[in-house]
């Protein structure tokens, strides 16, 4: 019987590492030069967060952060499917960044009250960085939502796809009952999901994007987009964009069951480390 705290820490660390890995793909090729710099720092922050969680997991397992982050078989990774998806375009990237960082905020706020002191203490530094991530995610969400129709469309498409798999971030962990009973996890994943959904629903509704919550990239009765030109969107075939909802809520990652996209991540992420066992870099 493994310590359920290890599963918790690996889920936390793997989410951060895999998303940081995906985010880092933008470094050098982001759609705006200044944003390239900003988003690279966010990628680095997420990878840095993974190191914090792996270090804590290392105190329970005796393994170093590289062995945990780069040395497990694919089915050993506990990240949500959402974070392993390719970046697609900037619309999806912003949408996923937003969904994830709201989730991370809910998660860190929860864990700050953990009765397992080392875990509660670790959240402090991460929450400080998280403030910038939230600022960044919300500002981009807001800008694209108000942007020309094209930008709003890309954002809406991205949100539909990301929201469909965001529940995977709150998939119950193995041994979760024990974690909750011991006060290690002060709030069950399902309750954290509710908190997250409340925040996301309120914020997207305020931007006139409530239709993406139902899996539709377009408003059912046409929408007035508050751009300077006051364009009106034609929503003739809006329902066709709703495709992505059917993927089962992006569940399975916490049990080590991943999407077809994970193979590529795993190969890139762990390939060099695995090819030269036991050396220093």
């Amino acid at each position: 019987m493994t310590d359920p705290r290890v599963d918790l820490l690996l889920a936390l660390g793997d989410d951060e590492l895999v998303l940081g890995h995906r985010h880092a793909h933008w470094t050098g090729v982001a759609p705006h030069l200044e944003e390239d710099l900003a988003f690279s720092s966010i990628a680095q922050d997420e990878i840095g967060h993974a190191v914090v969680w792996y270090r804590l997991a290392g105190e329970l397992t005796g393994k170093d952060p590289d062995a945990l982050g780069l040395g497990r078989p694919p089915e050993g990774y506990r990240n949500a499917i959402l974070v392993e998806r390719p970046n697609r375009d900037w619309g999806y990237t912003v949408a996923r960044h937003y969904c994830y960082d709201i989730a991370e905020d809910v998660r860190l706020t929860t864990l700050a009250d953990s009765l397992w002191t080392p875990l509660a203490e670790a959240t402090g530094a991460l929450r400080r960085e998280e403030r910038y991530h939230l600022l960044h995610a919300r500002l981009w969400l807001d800008r694209l939502a108000h942007g020309p129709l094209d930008a709003r469309g890309h954002l809406a498409d991205g949100l539909v796809a990301a929201l469909a798999e965001a529940p995977g971030l709150f998939e119950p962990l193995p041994g979760e009952d024990e974690l909750v009973a011991d006060g290690v996890l002060p709030l069950a994943s399902a309750d954290q999901h509710t908190r997250w959904r409340d925040v996301v629903t309120a914020e997207l509704t305020a931007l006139g994007l409530e239709h993406v919550l139902d899996g539709s990239a377009h408003h059912s009765d046409g929408e007035f987009v508050p751009t300077s030109s006051g364009e009106l969107l034609d929503t003739g075939d809006g329902a066709a964009a709703a495709g992505a909802v059917a993927s089962g809520g992006g569940l399975g990652g916490r049990l080590g069951r991943h999407s077809e996209d994970f193979a590529e991540v795993w190969e890139e992420l762990t390939g060099t480390y695995r090819a030269y066992p036991g050396v220093r870099w």
């Binding site: 840095g48 967060h49 530094a125 400080r128 403030r131």
Partner: peptide, 9 residues
């Protein structure tokens, strides 16, 4: 608060 390093940089 956002300019100070929070984690290991």
């Amino acid at each position: 608060d956002l300019l100070a390093f929070a984690t290991d940089k």
